[in-house]
Amino acid sequence: MDHLLVANNITKKYADYVALNKVSISVPTGSIFGLLGPNGAGKTSLIRIINQIILPDEGYLTMNGEPSKPDHVKQIGYLPEERGLYKNMKVGEQAIYLARLKGLSKVEAKEQLNYWFDRLNINHWWNKKLTELSKGMAQKVQFVVTVLHNPKLLIFDEPFSGFDPINANQIKDEILQLREDGATVIFSTHRMESVEELCDHIALIDKAEKIVDGKLIDIKREYRSNTFEVALEAAENMQLLKQIQQEFRTSPAHFKTIGNELKLNVHLNSDQKANELISYLASKGTVTHFVEKVPSVNDIFVQSVSSRGDE
């Protein structure tokens, strides 16, 4: 697989504090990559290293196979967690300034800005100062600034924080469109559930170390526990439960249905098949709910952190 960005054994220390300890990630070209982990795990340090804001103490980066060089920052669009623009500068003016710092000519910058302002319907903001805009509006401008120079790699730190749901959706759609058009996207966040459905690759980072990475589907397969969430309509719930418990390992399940069913998590052993469970349940009552419990990234994170702790 083609990798747009590879970070190899990156170590970063701040005096005695280790922010990153031999972290390696590979971001496939055209993917949406989730860099996930709790606050303070080292995500922002890694992102800053990718943006060449800080240098790693050890390890190296490659972009498109080339070792990292200053020119690469032109191909990156970065939305930092801490958003901000010049308060007393006109929106259009500062967007053009920031685009030119990324290497665009004045004309190109203007063209791009026109395109994006039209697209997001914010053309009348051009001559406004940032102080005249609301926080959500400023975030939109910030998004435009991030993508203005057509970067190949888009990095969003805590992407949807600060957006109201409508704007968040609009921005999400724009990001997906950019990916369609060939960009590679990195989402970095501690709110893992917020990007789970978008990411196709993830890396989990905790306490300066990478604990899991790879294709999200593969990871989920690896962490699947053969657990099924079922709801069964029958006359005698308690009796039924006892019967099932003789055949299968179960645990109480918590989800909502509209009836008064027996709700269970059923854990299958390696020699038990899902189909056998369905036929068994069907013979006992009406199955109204049957879903494989796929572990969420959160679950995977908790599980992998605790298993690391056991070591």
Binding site: P80, L85, L98
Partner: peptide
Amino acid sequence: SRIVEVIISSVKP
């Protein structure tokens, strides 16, 4: 105003 991080992602501090 936190713009500094955006700028130094383009230029050296």
